[in-house]
Amino acid sequence: MNVARPGAFLVLVALVAVAPLVVHYPVLLTQALIFGLLAAAFNLLLGELGFLSFGQATFNGLGAYAAGLLLVHVAHVPILVALLVAALCGAGGALVVGALSMQGAGVYAVMLTFAFNELAFYLAFQLRDLTGGDNGLRGVVRPEFIGISLAGENAYYYFVAAVFLVVFYALLRLIDSPFGHVLRAIRENEPRARAIGYDTRRFKVTAFTISGAVSGIAGAAYAMLYGFVPLEVVNFDTSTNIVIMGLLGGTGSPYGAIVGAAIFTLLSDRLSRLWAHWPLLLGILFCTVVLTLRGGVIEIVHRLRPSTPRRKAPLRSG
């Protein structure tokens, strides 16, 4: 069993490459990729570790504000530096939130991630001089990449696509790595994982930190997409949307996150043009999927291809 097996990943690369030829709306596609990163970061925690984080917007927000402030206040910041700073800020925030939240057991830990999200939101709201409060942080420039202008929306789409694919591939590797295997052991039975000698807390906080880093990168990409950091990047609605995308796609496979993010982004765009009360339709879809396909939309793939190895019961492989 190997989730990093090239086949599925190459299909994803091809889909990402041709998407702008099918959907002529690069900004929306870029947003789908950004949401894909957020959902993948969420699913790393829920799918692999079995930890429901209700505060993923905290790290998205940290990355967005960190990159935004850097690009507003400092001239000539290379784009990769902006992403790196965002990743580090997302990771740092997640390290603190993760270490403190995981002091709590079960549902309390979940509520703590939510509480920290609220805290982050009010900080962003109150620190107007820094973040612009509810007016948002304006004037975020989009740097070029090794001399290539990313001002065009297609160019920026392909840049974000490259970042997305690199990060997602790294997550696939991580899921298959010895570290990823320990996360699943913790998900299945944390006391037993401790009894066989794993410092489970360290693994959990590390996974949380990685999830924060990925979310931070997504936040930075979002800030540069719109040239502006709205307060929404850190609000609880965003955290909820990340949960919905994760569950919609399914946590049984890392690809589920991508499917969920794509459906969520494209559908909310279409539905919002049709009807003002579109979130209702999305809610109905979400409930239907969760009630009928417990493994999310990606479950359909597994049902159609019963030979597809499920990560839940990894097979022996040489």
Binding site: R173, S177, H181, E188, K312, P314
Partner: peptide
């Protein structure tokens, strides 16, 4: 570890004796 294979139950326990459990790039195989 109920949802894991019998093999993985034992494998992940054996892995706990290595220094490799924080390795994140190479496959566990």
């Amino acid at each position: 570890f109920r949802a894991l294979s019998a093999y993985e139950n034992v494998r992940v326990a054996a892995q706990s004796r290595t220094q490799a459990s924080f390795a994140m790039w190479e496959p566990a195989t």
